[in-house]
Computed example of a mutant assay.
Amino acid sequence: MSDRILLFIAALLIILPLLFVKNTEFAGADTAAEEMIQQIAPHYEPWFDVVFEPPGGEVETLLFSLQAAFGAGVIGYIIGLYKGRKRNG
């Protein structure tokens, strides 16, 4: 029963901001950091260039989503492995 409540709360935390927060740009931490660096030191030169620049925002979102899914899969596998060991042994 408590699992369903936690799942419901997690769904609310995902859906409610999308419904009530209007006219905002959901930029990442990289963008915020870049803007702050430009304000503090406008003549700053980065030490290196980007290795791979995705052709569009959709590809960048896809790669980030795949990375998150892979990480969640690894964490879920490890939790399941330890839970199975504890149950069997």
Rank of each mutant, 00 (worst) to 15 (best):
H43V: 09
L63Q: 07
A32G: 10
I75S: 02
A10R: 00
L63K: 03
P46A: 13
T24G: 15
G28P: 08
G84W: 12
I40S: 03
A68D: 12
Q39L: 08
E45A: 09
T24R: 10
P46Q: 00
E34I: 04
L16P: 06
L7S: 11
T61P: 01
D30P: 13
N88E: 10
E45N: 04
F70H: 04
G71K: 06
N88W: 13
L18I: 09
G71A: 04
I79Y: 06
L6A: 14
A10V: 06
A69H: 04
I75W: 05
E25Y: 04
R85M: 08
T61C: 10
E45S: 07
E45W: 08
E58W: 13
Y77G: 00
A29Y: 12
M1V: 03
D3I: 00
V51E: 03
S2V: 01
A72C: 00
I78L: 11
Y77F: 09
D30N: 13
A10W: 01
F8Y: 12
V74N: 04
A11N: 10
A68S: 14
F48K: 05
D30T: 13
A68G: 06
H43N: 15
G28E: 02
N88Q: 14
L18F: 15
L16E: 02
W47H: 14
T31D: 08
I15T: 03
L16F: 05
P42Y: 07
F70W: 06
Y44H: 14
A69W: 02
T24D: 15
G73F: 01
A41Y: 05
I40A: 06
F52S: 12
I15Q: 04
G57W: 10
A27Q: 13
S65Q: 09
Y44V: 00
L12F: 04
S2Y: 10
N88V: 06
G71H: 01
R4L: 13
I14Y: 07
G28N: 06
I79E: 05
